[in-house]
Design a protein around this nucleic acid. Structure first.
Length: 396
DNA sequence: TCTGGGGTCCTAGGACCC
DNA sequence: TCTGGGGTCCTAGGACCC
């Protein structure tokens, strides 16, 4: 049987700030958006005593805790620490799967062979992380991903929880359905109304095949049933999955219906997405524009094209067309743009620097590049312009 | 002074093809 | 005339996670 650890960094953003601001240690601290509409990303444990927590509007956090030290999110710093964290984990087993910036799975089945004190091994992982990098973590140890994840949540901070299948009735079933991984804000009240308050009650209903639950969970039914009885996938994927979409969004400081303001924000977002596409060497066949109304009602318009979007400028043209066609004049709280149907971009920096070939078929772009080379080298012309067919656009 | 930002996955309906 | 059925792609919306 597999042995998996789920390692979860405790109050990661806050602890990361405390590492470089030791003077704030012992004081209530929160990391989040400082703007009028900002929210708390992470609160330190001291701040949590005041009721400050993730998702709370920043102004409310400051009201709840007047001494709160409030710092902006510094993602690239956290990413740096995060990669140290995952590299550290790889010293115990090569089978490490990052799940997010602050948590991951480690398959320690092999690593534990011949180890006399498995609990000591796990304690060493936790202590070493604190000693060497200065980060606190909670660790769940279990025979599969689901149980390991549930286990790491059970003791925080600096907890270690072993959750074997035989422990499920005692340790998992008494928990409220809200703590079940995959059951969120919207589902909890519905399940409660149907009489399922604890995971144990849910497990019983699932086993019984309650038609309400069958329809409620749909194609996930079998997996949820397995999870409720402590069974599940035990594979740890070491090779990172390719991203499926890249996007940016922005909540405006004030709701606006001013096209000039909105378009300039949109352009900024598109340029950022374009920069990420370039850095990740990706291009996308689809563009989606998202708008949130002041009422919090979301709308999205998306289109798939025949020619990939690979840079910020080309993205902005498409996003702007969607904005003008569908959202011009309406009042907006948030605007976002996403590129999807990603594929590997084979464009090199040299190709990109010659010209923007976003409006051309890819093969034509290659022809154009040859032309460009020939022109610059004043060498033989290998192709003539008439052979290059210009395509209007990939818009369907 | 209500409610961020970056993602993944699922559902459902319509178009289209065979 | 009285309405197939499966598969795939696209789009819009929404739940959920960190």
């Amino acid at each position: 049987m597999a042995v998996l650890m789920h390692v979860d960094l405790n109050a990661f953003f806050a602890e990361a700030e405390l590492l470089r601001h030791p003077e704030y240690r012992g004081k209530p601290l929160a990391v989040g958006g400082k703007g009028r509409r900002g929210v708390v990303s992470t609160a330190s444990y001291e701040a949590r005593k005041y009721g400050v927590g993730s998702g709370m509007p920043s102004y409310q956090a400051k009201a709840a805790c007047p001494n709160l030290i409030f710092l902006p999110v510094d993602f690239s710093y956290y990413e740096m620490l995060s990669s140290s964290f995952f590299n550290y984990l790889k010293r115990y087993s090569p089978l490490v799967e990052p799940i997010s910036i602050d948590e991951g799975y480690v398959d320690i089945t092999k690593a534990l062979e011949g180890v006399e004190d498995p609990m000591g091994f796990v304690k060493q992982v936790q202590r070493g992380l604190l000693l060497e990098i200065g980060l606190k973590c909670s660790i769940g140890v279990a025979p599969n991903r689901f149980l390991a994840k549930m286990a790491s949540d059970m003791k925080k901070p600096m907890g270690i929880t072993v959750l074997r299948r035989r422990d499920v009735p005692r340790l998992l079933w008494p928990l409220p359905v809200s703590s079940f991984y995959g059951i969120g804000r919207k589902s909890v009240p519905l399940l409660q109304k149907a009489g399922y308050k604890t995971i144990g009650e849910l497990a019983e209903g699932l086993k019984r095949g309650d038609p309400y639950l069958v329809s409620f969970f749909g194609k996930n039914y079998r997996e949820v049933l397995a999870h409720a009885y402590g069974q599940g996938n035990d594979r740890v994927e070491v090779v990172p999955a390719e991203p499926k979409s890249i996007g940016r969004s922005l909540t405006l400081e004030q709701d606006s219906n001013d096209p000039e303001e909105i378009e300039s924000r949109l352009e900024g977002l598109c340029l950022e997405v374009g920069a990420t596409l370039k850095r990740e060497r990706k291009e996308g066949m689809g563009v989606s524009l998202t708008v949130r109304e002041p009422s919090f009602k979301n709308h999205s318009k998306s289109l798939t094209y025949e020619v990939p979007v690979s840079d910020g400028k080309g993205l902005y043209e498409k996003a702007l067309a969607l904005y003008e066609e569908f959202f011009l004049g309406i009042s907006i709280r948030l605007i976002g743009v996403t590129v999807f149907s990603l594929r590997e971009s084979n464009s090199t920096d040299i190709q990109m620097s010659f010209f923007d070939y976003g409006d051309y078929e890819k093969k034509d772009a290659t022809k154009l590049m040859v032309q460009e080379w020939n022109r610059r080298l004043e060498g033989p012309v290998l192709m003539v312009a008439s052979q290059v067919s210009k395509k209007k656009d990939g818009t369907k």
